[in-house]
C-alpha cells in the first residue's frame, strides 16, 4: 500500500510544459531520491506533492485515498514541505522559527505546550542547533539557516517530509548529518522524498531513486539500476570516472562523518 502517490501529473507554465505525465509512488518507511538535471521538473513535482501548486491534470492520493478532499490542516500535519529557497521575512530568533513547525498540531487558540517543547528540544539537538537557538535568523550562515529550516519541518513530525535540495548549502559534515537525519526519519516508519544534485549522496542514502529528465521519468529503481552509463549520459551528459580500467561505483562516498565525541 502506498503512502503518497501521484499519477499522470502534468503541468505547464504558459506554453512550456514542465511535467509531462509523471507517476510517483512513495511507500511507508521509504526514502525516495528525486534526481535529474536542472530544469527537469523536480522542484515542480515536489511542490505539487506538497499541495502548494496545483497540477493541470493528474491525481494525487494519500493512503490510497484522493488528496483533494483532505482538509488543509490535516494535510499540513502529515506532509511537511521544505522548499529550496526560503526567505524569512523578519529576523526572528532560531527557536521561534522552529516553533512555527508545531503550528499544524495546535488549535488556533493554543500555544506551544510541554509536549511540543520536548519535540522542539529533541530536534534542536539532532540538527546541532543548540548553540544557535537564541540567535537571530539573519545573522546565521547559509548552511546554518538551511539546518534551521530543516528543523522547522522536522518538528512537525510529519508522515512525509518533502525536502528540496536540503544539503546544497551545507559543508560535507553537515551534508552527512542531514542525510542521516532524513534516514532516521524513515526508520521510524515515516517517509521522505528528497531532491538531490549530489548523485553519490543520493545513491548512498536513498532506498530508491527516480530520475527525471525533461518533465518525464527517465528511470526509477535502485541506485545501480538508475545510475547506469546510459541514463547518466542521456540525462546529465556525464559518465562515471574510471580508475584502473574499471568504473567507480556511484554509491560509494569518498568520506564519512567523524563523531565529535570520538
Amino acid at each position: 500500500m502506498s503512502l503518497l502517490s501521484g499519477k499522470g501529473l502534468c503541468v505547464s507554465r504558459g506554453q512550456r510544459p514542465i511535467l509531462k505525465g509523471v507517476d510517483i509512488v512513495l511507500q511507508p518507511g521509504e526514502m525516495l531520491g528525486l534526481i535529474g538535471p536542472n530544469g527537469a521538473g523536480k522542484s515542480t513535482l515536489l511542490r505539487i506533492l506538497a499541495g502548494v501548486m496545483p497540477a493541470d491534470t493528474g491525481e494525487l492520493s494519500l493512503d490510497e485515498t484522493a488528496m483533494a478532499p483532505i482538509p488543509q490542516t490535516e494535510r499540513a500535519r502529515r506532509i511537511a514541505y521544505l522548499p529550496q529557497l526560503s526567505e524569512i521575512a523578519w529576523p526572528m530568533c532560531v527557536e521561534r522559527i522552529i516553533e512555527l513547525g508545531r503550528t499544524p498540531h495546535l488549535e488556533p487558540w493554543q500555544s506551544v505546550g510541554d509536549e511540543d517543547r520536548e519535540i522542539i528540544g529533541k530536534v534542536i539537538r539532532q540538527t546541532d542547533l543548540l548553540a544557535l537557538r537564541d540567535r537571530s535568523f539573519n545573522t546565521l550562515s547559509g548552511g546554518e539557516q538551511a539546518r534551521v529550516l530543516l528543523a522547522r519541518a522536522m518538528v512537525t513530525e510529519p508522515d512525509i517530509l518533502l525536502a528540496d535540495e536540503p544539503v546544497s548549502a551545507l559543508d560535507p559534515a553537515h551534508q552527512l548529518d542531514v542525510m542521516n537525519l532524513l534516514r532516521q526519519h524513515c526508520e521510524t516508519g515515516h517517509s521522505v522524498i528528497v531532491v538531490l544534485h549530489d548523485l553519490s549522496l543520493a545513491a548512498h542514502y536513498c532506498h530508491r531513486l527516480q530520475l527525471l529528465h525533461q518533465g518525464m521519468t527517465l528511470a526509477e529503481g535502485s541506485a545501480e539500476e538508475v545510475l547506469n552509463e546510459k541514463n547518466l549520459a542521456d540525462a546529465y551528459e556525464i559518465e562515471l570516472t574510471k580508475a584502473n580500467g574499471s568504473a567507480l561505483k556511484p554509491t560509494s562516498l569518498p568520506w564519512r562523518r567523524l563523531r565529535k565525541d570520538e
Partner: peptide
Amino acid sequence: WRQGRPLDLLTLGEETAGSMGAD
C-alpha cells in the same frame, strides 16, 4: 482576532505557510 498565527507562518514565505495549513 486570532489571525496572528497565519501571519507568523507567512514569515516563512507564502508557499511554506500554505504547506503548513495557512489558508
